[in-house]
């Protein structure tokens, strides 16, 4: 992997504050990837072998039925897309598609898992960060379940 990617990775909000040693390990699993608007980053049900750290653009997560496709969440610059690579059975749960031209760090999930297994300190650090993101998404979904913009009792 090109060593020039490490400084850029260090600047990404998801990885900010990681030690140079940890970043060096992660850099071995990372590459830059540009997605055109409309291009899929991940497809529901397929092997979750990658995750993405968004640098520019926006990615939408879709849940599709026969009748319609609904956006359940979006991610923009500084955010993580994809955690299925670290949770068995390692299959994507949603479609992820760029809604505009998007630049992302594309991380190899199998490579990440191996490095996290080999280096528990790295694994713990990475998992803490993924957990923060999971917690934030859970908060978001729970708040939306409240349907706070629904009809209040009115006068």
């Amino acid at each position: 992997m090109p060593s020039t990617l490490q400084p850029a990775l260090a600047e990404h909000p998801f990885l900010r504050g990681m030690t140079p040693e940890a970043l060096a390990l992660l850099t071995g699993c990372a590459k830059n990837h540009r997605f055109a608007a409309g291009e899929y980053l991940a497809t529901h049900g397929t092997q979750a072998d990658r995750c993405f750290l968004i640098r520019k653009g926006r990615v939408a997560l879709y849940a599709a039925s026969a009748a319609k496709s609904v956006i359940v969440n979006t991610a923009g610059p500084g955010e993580l897309v994809g955690w299925s690579w670290i949770i068995t059975p390692y299959r994507y749960r949603f479609d992820a598609r760029a809604t505009e031209d998007t630049l992302a760090f594309d991380l190899d999930g199998a490579c990440l898992r191996q490095k996290c297994d080999d280096n528990p300190a790295l694994g713990y650090e990475f998992l803490k960060r993924v957990s923060i993101e999971l917690g934030r998404r859970l908060d978001d979904v729970q708040l939306r379940l409240l349907d706070v913009y629904g009809e209040p009792d009115g006068g």
Partner: peptide, 15 residues
């Protein structure tokens, strides 16, 4: 809070 597939903007709570 909820969007159809044609929406190009953000989906999520205001925070």
């Amino acid at each position: 809070d909820a969007a159809s597939g044609s929406w190009k903007g953000s989906v999520g709570v205001v925070t």
